[in-house]
Nucleic acid binder design. Structure first.
Lengths: 95, 95
DNA sequence: ATATTTTTGACTAAAATTGACAAGTCAATC
DNA sequence: GATTGACTTGTCAATTTTAGTCAAAAATAT
């Protein structure tokens, strides 16, 4: 989703090829392509490596990555907003 | 987590046994026990059936159920709050 | 004590995920 | 129009995760 787009932007800014990024992460080129297009989940570890490779703020990327996961779990749910508020409440109380 | 507790409360209010609820959902008794104690995920379909069985507001239960899922995906993440805000933004823009 | 309810742990079938590989498309260039 | 390079797509094997059962153990009530 959004993290994928962002990763593609960053890669293109750096002028890197899928192949080069793939070599860095030690995975197949096709796999990077799929991550960038949101066809595959991205492992947290990869985000960290990519933040470093692209010289980009790691926390920002991790936030986007996590936001995508949240979005994915709520997107088709009628109670999405209510649930988010409840989850936030749990979270601030460190349940 | 929280949805489990709530389901247990509701069941006890109605004076139903695990066995009886299990029969209603057509699953094993142990499974209900595990759902109520947050040891197993609960299928959305079960929440709907239980709302009806317990005569309780379905949307409220679904919101709790979804909140738990959100909480679960963010609970160990440093960027949890930021991610939630981003996800909310996506959601309100219906991306 | 014993009968009933709930919990626990081990287990398995099914489903989802990871990631590779091969073949395909698409542009640009020769 | 053939070739080359970058990316995409489909399929697949291997691994991991999940759903739910069963039997035994623990807890609770009678």
């Amino acid at each position: 989703m959004i993290i994928g787009q962002k990763l593609r932007e960053l890669r293109e800014e750096k002028g890197l090829l899928l192949r080069q990024v793939a070599a860095e992460l030690e995975v197949d080129t096709a796999y990077i392509s799929k991550m960038e297009r949101g066809e595959k989940n991205i492992r947290k570890e990869f985000i960290i490596q990519l933040a470093s490779l692209y010289n980009h703020n790691q926390d920002e990327l991790l936030a986007l990555w996590l936001a995508d996961k949240i979005y994915d779990t709520v997107k088709d749910e009628a109670m999405a907003f209510e649930a988010i508020e409840i989850a936030k409440k749990y979270l601030s109380k460190e349940i």
